[in-house]
């Protein structure tokens, strides 16, 4: 399933980006406000093979991509794989931290809210989640930057590390992570909270929970072993969905925080119409999403033996 999906993703993104107006050579040779000479632009387009028919260009790209060569950036002439590899750690660390944080916190808060249904905590959680789902992440980022970085000056406005940090390097890097991690995990958190809350409520209403209680098991054991563990089964599917969300969301977050990651790099490539880079970034992004779903399936099998056995 993975290979045909990737093939279609590449075909569609190739079609979309080439259907959009714009020309990479014109963009990178027009430095500042000046316009490159017509002859120079034409010659470079010819050299790069951009004047060939589109299907020919796509097949040429595909042939190389299958062999692991994603081509060279039209702008910087460096191998796309090398450029992405350079940018990937920054994206992965931000996404990884945010995923772990939003998942653990979300499951915790959601479970408590379900157990203490209609309590003040539950209402507060609902309002929080409702607000969260209606606030765009770029807006939230800008407010946080304005308050914590510009007004208070406690945290940096963006990027991943300072040039010559005043304190220890790890502290400086940690400070740079704070705001983007807050925004990224907050957006994920509310989804986890809402799903976990309803899943836990459902579990608590099950017959086996009532039976366990009737048996006289202590309520902690009932909550943990019977209700909570079972509530996690449907939640695991959220994992794949979360990764898709994180990858999509990173295009906004990385831009706003000037994060040196792959999404920011890909966004810049779109503005410059750097076709090979756009194709590469799209492909890697979709590999993440597909892998996320694959992991979710595997976890689901692991948690719920019924599925494993039926296969």
């Amino acid at each position: 399933m993975v290979i045909p999906t990737l093939f279609f993703v590449s075909l569609i993104s190739f079609a979309i980006i080439r259907a959009a107006p714009g020309d990479p050579v014109r963009m990178y040779t027009s430095s500042g406000m000046s316009k490159a000479d017509a002859e120079d632009v034409e010659r470079i387009r010819e050299n790069l093979g951009l004047n060939d028919p589109l299907p020919v260009q796509y097949v040429r790209w595909l042939e190389q991509a299958v062999q692991g060569n994603l081509g060279y950036s039209i702008v910087s002439h460096r191998p796309v794989t090398e450029l992405i590899a350079e940018k990937l750690p920054a994206s992965l660390s931000l996404m990884g931290i945010s995923l772990v944080l939003s998942m653990t916190l979300g499951i915790l808060i959601g479970s408590i809210a379900a157990v203490k249904r209609y309590s003040l905590f539950d209402y507060a959680t609902t309002i929080f989640a409702f607000l969260g789902s209606s606030l765009p992440s770029f807006w939230l980022s800008m407010i946080l930057i304005w308050f914590f970085a510009v007004r208070l000056g406690w945290l940096p406005t963006g990027q991943m590390h300072s040039f010559r940090p005043s304190g220890p390097v790890w502290l400086d890097t940690a400070k740079h992570f704070v705001l983007p991690v807050i925004v990224t995990s907050y957006v994920g958190l509310i989804v986890w909270v809402r799903y976990q809350r309803s899943s836990m409520i459902e579990a608590l209403n099950q017959d086996y929970v009532r039976t366990a209680r009737a048996k006289g098991l202590n309520s902690k054991a009932v909550l943990y072993r019977h209700a909570w563990r079972n509530s996690l089964v449907p939640i695991v599917t959220l994992f794949g969905f979360s990764i898709a969300n994180l990858v999509a969301g990173s295009y906004v977050i990385e831009y706003v925080f000037s994060w040196p990651g792959m999404a920011n790099f890909g966004f810049d490539a779109i503005l410059k119409r750097d076709y090979p880079v756009i194709m590469g970034v799209t492909l890697v992004s979709s590999i993440f999403i597909i892998t996320g779903n694959l992991i979710a399936d595997i976890c689901y099998m692991f948690i719920n033996p019924q599925i494993r056995n039926s296969r």
Binding site: A20, G22, D23, R273
Partner: peptide, 13 residues
Amino acid sequence: LEAASFETEVYQN
């Protein structure tokens, strides 16, 4: 228009 589209629409088309 967005910058790259502008370039094409005006200077090419």
